[in-house]
């Protein structure tokens, strides 16, 4: 069961890091590499982080082989949630959906590195150490880049906050 969890999460990681439709290939490649290197795995880091590091590496290779990150997970997607057809959609659910759309939009507009760190740290809820492994950055860079990305996000969001008050 644990291993299966890794597998689903691996796919999600590859997808959200922008592998897009190539996520399948990335994960397949990562599985093969992970199994092939299994004897090299010493168990001194959690298996998940080790596997995710391979996923991260494969996704980066993919981006390098593309002329642009066209498979970017956070590319312009038709957003769900209430659209202009229902501007006065009542209810907390609608408001929350709208907020999520705004938030996702703001994340999408971040620079590549800021976006990657936000995707890892928050959308995928990875630890700092795991994020460092996936992105292949020093841990200090993850920390500072996360803080910077949050500031940027907050600035972007400040304009659209007039209608919503975060609860709590």
């Amino acid at each position: 069961m644990l291993v299966a969890r890794h597998s689903a999460f691996a796919h999600r990681t590859a997808w959200l890091l922008g592998a897009g439709d190539d996520a399948e290939d990335v994960v397949q490649e990562a599985f093969v590499k992970a199994f092939r290197r299994l004897r090299l795995y010493r168990g001194d880091s959690p298996f998940r982080a080790w596997l995710l590091a391979i996923i991260g590496n494969e996704t980066r290779n993919l981006h390098r082989s593309r002329s642009r990150r066209d498979g970017l997970a956070l590319r312009a997607a038709a957003l769900g949630g209430p659209g202009p057809e229902a501007p006065d959609l009542p209810g907390d659910a609608a408001l929350a959906a709208e907020r999520r759309a705004t938030l996702l939009d703001a994340v999408r507009q971040l620079d590549e590195r800021d976006r990657d760190v936000v995707v890892c740290r928050y959308l995928l809820d990875l630890s700092e150490a795991e994020t460092a492994q996936v992105l292949g950055w020093p841990r200090g860079t993850v920390k500072s880049r996360t803080a910077r990305a949050l500031v940027k996000l907050r600035t972007r969001l400040s304009a659209g906050l007039s209608r919503e008050v975060p609860h709590g």
């Binding site: 597998s7 689903a8 691996a10 796919h11 999600r12 997808w15 959200l16 996520a23 399948e24 994960v27 907020r99 999520r100 938030l103 996702l104 994340v107 936000v118 928050y122 959308l123 995928l124 809820d125 949050l150 996000l153 907050r154 969001l157 400040s158 906050l161 008050v165 975060p166 709590g168």
Partner: peptide, 24 residues
């Protein structure tokens, strides 16, 4: 009012709403 903790929590919650395709 939208402090760092709130935004981080919101982003984490957002992650739960993002559906990715089923791994083939």
């Amino acid at each position: 009012r939208d402090g760092p903790v709130d935004l981080a929590a919101e982003l984490r919650a957002l992650g739960g709403w993002l559906d990715t395709p089923e791994p083939p």
